[in-house]
Structures are given as C-alpha cells and as structure tokens.
Amino acid sequence: MAATGEIRRSYWRRNQRALAPWLFIAPGAFMFVIYVVIPIFRSVTISFYKWDGMGPKVWIGLSNYAELWGDPAFVVSLKNNFIWLLLYLLAVPAGLFMAIFLNQTVRGIRVYKSLFFFPFVISQVVVGLMFSWFYAPGFGLFYKLTQMLSGTGIAILADERFATYGIIAAGLWPQIAYCMILYLTGLNNVSPDQIEAARLDGAKGWKMLWYVIIPQLRPATFIAAVVTVIGALRSFDLVSIMTQGGPYGSTRVLSYYMYETALSEYGYRMGYGAAIAVVLFLIMMLFISGFIWKMYRDETER
C-alpha cells in the first residue's frame, strides 16, 4: 500500500506542472460550460423547433426564421436596436468631455468625480423609475419644461414617436458616467512631456485634443466603445420598466421582444424566442469577434 502511495505521489510530483492548470480550471470551467457554453448551442437548436417549453418539440426547420421577416414587431425591434446602438455611442464623446471638464485639481474635486460617477452604480430599475417620474405626463419635470417651451407638454413615454428616445436618454445617463471614469483614468496617464512639447509647438485647445490627447486615449476609447455597444444591444431593463415595449410596441428591442414571445402572456413560444435571440447573438458576434481579434493580436505580439 505504502508503495503505491509513494508511486502516486511521485507521479503527481513529476507531472504536477502539467496537471495543475487543469485542476485549477476544472471547477469553474464545469460551471461555465453547463450554464453558458452549452445553452448557447441549445438555443440555436431550439430555434429550429416549435416548442412551448413543456410539451414535445416539433422540428420545423427554418420556419421560425422565415416568420421573423414578415413579423412587423421583429422589424420594429431590430430598427430600435440600431437606434439604440447609434445613439448610445454618444456616451463615448460625452464621457470624454465630462472627463476633460473634471480633470482638474481644485478643492473637493474627488468628491465631484464620485458624485458625477455614481449614476452608474444605481440599478437600471431605479434609473428607469427616476426617468419615468422625470417624464411623467402632467407633472413630470420634463413635461413641464416642454410645456413651457412649446405650449403643449409632451408625454414622452406615451408618444410612440419619442418613447424610444426617452428610454435611450435614461440609458445614456449611467453610460456617460461609465465612459467618463474610463477617460478620467486615461487622462491621468497621458504623458505630460508630450503635452508640454506640443504646447511649445503652439498646439492648444481642439488641435491639442485631436492630435495629441485622443491618440493617447486609444485604450480607454476602445473599452468605452466595447462596453457601450454591448450595453446598447443588451438593453432590456429600461424598456421593461419604463414602457414594457409600448406604446403599441413602438419601444420594443430584440431582447425585450424575445422575452415577450418566450415568457409572457403572449404565449410560450420558446422556439421563436430562441430564433430572435440567435439573431441578436449574431449581431453581437460581429462586435465580439472584433474585440477578441484585437486581444488575440495583443497577446501574440508580446
């Protein structure tokens, strides 16, 4: 017995550097495969079936995808997702200007920075409620403001022309704070020598910003753009809280519409919901693969 124990120990001793990484990876990888990797493939499979979540699945091939094209609710959701994506990206320059505004050393500036940042820490549910109050028809601050300016108040969230933009504005609030903090860290690391050199060459203001500062902020800009794109495509909480997709479905986005078809009173159409999720996934993949490609280049360059 002692001998086998000895052999086993020496086997471990000899091979521990080959075995250790797998041991360390195993528990986390197990969970990740079960809850993330396999579900991605299962979703793709489910999207080829008609399924109510409980009963038998019926193979219907590409019918779910074919149905998507003729489904006006899907088209509206897709269009809204692009509006989200486009307008959400405004958070990147807005965050940059806010960071520049705050990148000073006056008394109390650290408190200012954290207060400017803190919308990001608040749950989107609460952000949604805050903006609902802000927009509330009749007494909301924003409603009163439009009433003062144009004579008639605009109930943003009840008006299908504006509702999506109202929700996006709510989403931009924490997102700008996030980009701001990324840029504040970036600005901290801009080389002072280069700025001095550029100043001696007579660069200032916009020229300085464009030719000297922004190029040095590349890493911050990259991260800010990545998290903003992901945030825009994932948007669900605000739509659910503020309008539930209404009025008349005009504020639906893919993630919300997917939830509606698969899990709400509109019926448990798991297959159709999965098909919507796959479309969203493919859009996201375009961005993720670009991100991974850049990381891969950075890793192999080193």
């Binding site: 579900p39 495509l233 993630s255 899990l263 798991m270 999720a277 796959v278 996201m284």
Partner: peptide, 11 residues
C-alpha cells in the same frame, strides 16, 4: 459578452 437572451430559454 454574449447577450443574456441567448441563454434565457435553455438556462
């Protein structure tokens, strides 16, 4: 970075 929604039905 995957959208949660693709995990929803299977999870």
């Amino acid at each position: 970075f995957v959208p949660f929604q693709i995990l929803m039905v299977p999870v």
